[in-house]
Structure formats: C-alpha cells, structure tokens
C-alpha cells in the first residue's frame, strides 16, 4: 500500500500512505508496513499526508503505534496536512506529539538541520 522514497545521504525515509482515507479499514495494514521499515532500521521518517483527506481515530492510533515502536531511537514527523487532518491533530493534541511541516522539502530540511 505505502510508497516510500529514501534520501540516502541523511537516511531519511519519506512514507506516503497512498490512500485518501486512513481509517479503521486500512490503518492496521499501514502501521504494519511502516513498522517493517522501522524494523529495517529506518529511524528518520517523514509521513507525507498530502493525499490523505481524512484520518480517523484508528489512523491516529496507527501513527502513535509507530511513534511508540521508534521510541527515542529516531524521529517521525508529518507533512502536508489537509485542513481536516489538521483539525483532527489539533483536537487530539497530536499537533503537540508530531512535528508538522508544510511540505516534504520543509520536513526533510528540518530533519537535516538536526542531524
């Protein structure tokens, strides 16, 4: 399901869930696929939500599941949030848990600065 793009020199992996709706119907599959990346030692993840117009509580649960697996070994940020997703992040305070950037380039630039 997911599409990934690697930026090798900094070890940043951009993950595109490639769905319009990240919900109970596909959140578990999404989580499993990204967990597999984390298990392959990908520890700098950008979740690009540009195509996602809607994310429900299961989607939030999947995102937090990734964060828990990564622990303090790396970081996971989000980018390109639609207004609906932004609202969901705000109401559940996920905007305080995940750093959010306007687009992929801004997210990558921010991670590079911290490396």
């Amino acid at each position: 399901m997911i599409k990934t793009r690697l930026h090798d020199e900094y070890g940043i992996c951009v993950v595109n869930p490639a769905v319009e709706r990240l919900t109970a119907a596909n959140a578990t599959a999404f989580k499993e696929e990204v967990l597999a990346l984390i298990d392959q030692k990908q520890d700098k993840l950008v979740i690009d939500l540009a195509d996602v117009t809607f994310l429900d509580s299961s989607g939030i649960g999947a995102m937090v599941g990734l964060l828990k697996r990564l622990g303090n070994r790396g970081e996971i940020v989000v980018c390109s949030l639609s207004s609906g997703v932004q609202q969901m992040f705000k109401i559940t305070r996920m905007d305080r848990v995940f750093s959010s950037y306007s687009d992929v380039n801004a997210a990558i630039a921010a991670i590079k600065e911290r490396v």
Binding site: S57, I60, G61, V64, K90, I91, T92, R93, V97
Partner: peptide, 13 residues
C-alpha cells in the same frame, strides 16, 4: 473546548 489528549493513547500526558 480546544482539544485534549485522548485517553490511554500516550503515557504521562
């Protein structure tokens, strides 16, 4: 209300 953390999602929030 302006939001708040969900219950039992994250520890210590």
């Amino acid at each position: 209300g302006t939001g708040g953390f969900p219950v039992a999602l994250l520890d210590g929030v």
